[in-house]
Design a protein around this nucleic acid. Sequence first.
DNA 1: GCCGACGGCTAATGCGCTTTAGTATGACCC
DNA 2: GGGTCATACTAAAGCGCATTAGCCGTCGGC
Lengths: 350, 350
Amino acid sequence: MRRTPARRPTIKDIARRAGVSESAVSFALNGRPGVSEATRTRVRRVAEQLGWQPSAAARALSGEGAATVGLVLARPARTLGGESFFLRLVSGVQEVLSAHGLGLLFQVVEDIGAECAVHRRWWAEHRVDGVLVVDPRAADPRPALLDELGLPAVIIGAPDDAGRPLPDHGAISTLWADDTGAMASVVGHLHALGHRRITHIAGLPELAHTRRRMAGLRAEAERRGLPEVRSVTTDYSDTEGAEATRRVLAAPRPPTALVYDNDVMAVAGLAVAAERGVPVPGGLSIVAWDDSVLCRSTHPALTALARDTAAFGRHAAEELVALLAGGPARRVEDVTPQLVVRDSTAPPGS
Amino acid sequence: MRRTPARRPTIKDIARRAGVSESAVSFALNGRPGVSEATRTRVRRVAEQLGWQPSAAARALSGEGAATVGLVLARPARTLGGESFFLRLVSGVQEVLSAHGLGLLFQVVEDIGAECAVHRRWWAEHRVDGVLVVDPRAADPRPALLDELGLPAVIIGAPDDAGRPLPDHGAISTLWADDTGAMASVVGHLHALGHRRITHIAGLPELAHTRRRMAGLRAEAERRGLPEVRSVTTDYSDTEGAEATRRVLAAPRPPTALVYDNDVMAVAGLAVAAERGVPVPGGLSIVAWDDSVLCRSTHPALTALARDTAAFGRHAAEELVALLAGGPARRVEDVTPQLVVRDSTAPPGS
DNA sequence: GCCGACGGCTAATGCGCTTTAGTATGACCC
DNA sequence: GGGTCATACTAAAGCGCATTAGCCGTCGGC
């Protein structure tokens, strides 16, 4: 037989025990004026004794908001394979949210259309007070949707909606990493080593940061007078990363250095090099975007663009908290990822 | 200036537009008897027109439950490094939950004490109807806590609480993989290749599945008469995995085969072998528990114990949904992970 | 032709909290 | 001593929904 669970105490219980009205309890516990200090402390003590916690549902219903923020990840299951960036991001997000008593409602969906539907539903059901948006892309439908719904949001990863400024009457902040600067540092490092043929194995072409990295690469190559530098796009999976590597290395004048847009593809690329008998870094230099334990675990260890992903998540959460408190929308740039040089880059033909 | 967001329609709006009372609307939309078919369809149409969605807060407050389940991951940030198992699990969980209109409240905390506090708070705040529990361990305080709170739960990864049966009046189901059988298949494979000295680089010793794997290894080794088989424990991180590998390989009679409890450590171990000039699989065979893209991406590709992690998550979510619907607590064993033989295992000294 | 049953609906209550309006008490001032 | 005014509190309404009780008309049975 299933035991009936313990009943949760309500402010009514507190009111009875403390000998005051329910409203007095509410005032006392929320730091509102209208009760004496003596009563306030007495009520607080009783509440603590009873182990009272406010009912999130009741709070939300009486107009306080849901004390919850949403985060939906739109990725086909296939590309979730070796993904570790996201969990680190979320762990940073959580640190800040839980410090503010906010819950995180999380959902994984297949595509961006489904993501929009989730936002709509969350909004209609009063489930969230705001959302975090990841993987911004060119012609992204989400900023306009969230603006229409009046749902505060922080867009993680892009300075704007594909060049167009965001509608500034909405409560939408943006936070992004300096991909351009980071890419310049990568090209600088490789060029200094003597590389002139560099290929960038990029991620999904529709994502905003992919475009920024590709543009950054082109600009920096032009500045340095390197004509044989280009990008090819993939879906971030190990499979396409490996395939692209094979294709690129089989070309007539293959590149001497490869820059991968994530760690999973970089590791896959390293395996392709091994399989073809190309020594790394002697015959091919490899750089991974987004450092992770993987880059340190391979042999040779991979030169990588490192950033503190958890801190990135914390920043994003802080922006959202500020927005929820009624603060203005902001556009902030995070620190530039730093190139960590390890053993996978060296002068070509060394 | 911040625009005032669109107002969400309520059943009152529907009632007015449809010319019936609010209760009739509630009956109509929830499939309750008490309204004619004609009225029901009319109300449904109006609701759809208005884009109405029930307020989660109001539903929860009027006793329907929060339509949300919780999941807390207690892991120090340090060990989150290359973690990809969890996200795949969650993506499976989501498929089932969202099909039932359930949200997932997710939290990452540092340790199990904090996790218990989160469960208590969620319960007190009426935030969740049930929870999923991962990483069960020996002398786990969570089953008793959840039982006390009367919070339905599915414990993912262990058949019981360290041998003691769960209190069966609670609504706590368990779901676990057949670690013992899987370990037997690994030992069988290695033994058949001719290995007699096998070391198991295990994960955290306090986790229940680590214990089962260690016990499974001991039992199978005994059965086959292999005295030089043992386990060493780590924290699952690449660092400790690499360290353990170095220590083990430097011993007087080093093992000829290593079994790693996760993919991250297996990759780290592979790098250590490369660094020491030990050829894999010629000089050392490697098996990874939990297949992932990583195992396919390394060179040589790693022999691994594969299971469908998303399906595992789906099963867990299904059990929880059944529990929430009032079903009995169950104890179910998931399919046994299958050994996928790749290029990292071969006869010793080949 | 009367009674009871039943289908189809409305009114009213409650969930736990916040908030507004209102009341009692006492201090203070001319 | 009657007025104003703050202080400390209570009463009551409302958030959006589910649910219970109750109301009215109709139909079937005797």
